[in-house]
């Protein structure tokens, strides 16, 4: 469990990024911080591993105040992945993965041995091990970043927009694999994004931020979607623009699947179903899902 108790951060230039912030992040769950640029997500995340020290208040990990121990040792026990992978350009991929073990005195041989295992875990081919980071694609670099963060088998994984700079296809792939990893490895993940879709896809616990590190709403994606706490949240998750209200469109997709559109009429996907009430046959014309169901009932 990670707990923020009444934390305030004022930067030397006077900017108050976070003011009286309190939050409990559950253990062994996937928590996502989401909010628009500059609302304090990175600042809050970095207070967990003391890259940013709070001006006042406390940050506790399992009821232990992080400020009391050694910052370097704390950081080595927490995985950290950021947007621009932050790999060391002058070290080969395999040695990047073994960065933290080397720092703690593990031999090069043993460090590399374990790093090979981690490359497999994150789905990277061993043939890439002796390349330099600049010789990898953006998506591959992010995988190496994740492998590096896992190298000390940390209980906590902090990820600051790790997939922000990769293309949508690769991002989707990385998201799926991260979910699998989190389930398999059973870690506490704190993930920062400004993409609400990504937040709802990944997060078991989603925290929506407003400017100044204020929590607009937190809960499971279902809770938030069903009950936006404010107009701000409704607007942020797109509920007000009808983005989240889907209906079946007038246009029939192939093989009888139904095309869904959102409140603005933008295509959102198709329904695949064997349910005869929803499935095609007659070819839907200008009916919403509920219409279709009614009709099936009439028949």
């Amino acid at each position: 469990m990670i707990e923020f108790r009444n934390v305030t951060k004022q930067f030397p230039d006077g900017t108050v990024a976070v003011d009286g912030f309190s939050l409990v992040i559950p253990s062994r769950q996937f928590t996502v911080f989401v909010g628009s640029s500059g609302c304090g997500k990175t600042t809050i995340l970095r207070m967990i591993n003391r890259m940013v020290e709070p001006t006042s208040g406390q940050v506790l990990i399992d009821d232990h105040d992080v400020a009391t121990g050694d910052a370097v040792r704390l950081r080595r026990s927490i995985g950290y992945v950021m947007q621009q992978s932050g790999l060391l350009p002058h070290r080969r991929v395999i040695d990047n993965v073994a960065t933290v073990p080397y720092l703690t005195g593990v031999s090069k041989k043993k460090g590399r041995q374990e790093a090979f295992g981690l490359l497999r875990t994150v789905g990277l081919d061993e043939s890439l091990a002796y390349r330099y980071p600049a010789q990898l694609s953006g998506g591959q670099q992010q995988r190496v970043g994740v492998a590096r963060a896992l190298a000390v088998d940390p209980n906590i994984l902090l990820m600051d927009e790790p997939f922000g700079a990769v293309d949508p296809l690769v991002r989707a792939e990385l998201q799926t694999e991260l979910l699998r990893l989190q389930r398999d490895l059973d870690k506490t993940v704190v993930f920062v994004t400004h993409d609400i879709d990504e937040a709802f896809l990944l997060g078991q616990h989603v925290v929506i931020f407003q400017k100044g590190g204020i929590i607009a709403q937190q809960g499971s994606p279902a809770e938030i979607l069903a009950n936006p706490a404010s107009d701000f949240v409704a607007s942020f998750i797109g509920a007000d623009r009808g983005k989240r209200r889907l209906r079946v469109s007038d246009i029939a997709a192939d093989n009888g699947e139904l095309l869904l559109v959102d409140g603005n009429g933008h295509p959102a996907g198709v329904i695949e179903t064997d349910d005869p009430r929803l499935g095609a046959g007659t070819g839907p014309k200008s009916r919403s899902v509920s219409n279709k169901t009614d009709q099936a009932g009439d028949a």
């Binding site: 591993n49 890259m51 080595r76 950290y80 950021m82 060391l88 720092l103 590096r148």
Partner: peptide, 17 residues
């Protein structure tokens, strides 16, 4: 690059390291 410096700090390099 600043991201490299930041990430070095984040993974636990001490100042001298």
């Amino acid at each position: 690059p600043e991201p490299v410096q930041d990430s070095a700090t984040a993974v636990g390099f001490s100042g001298w390291q």
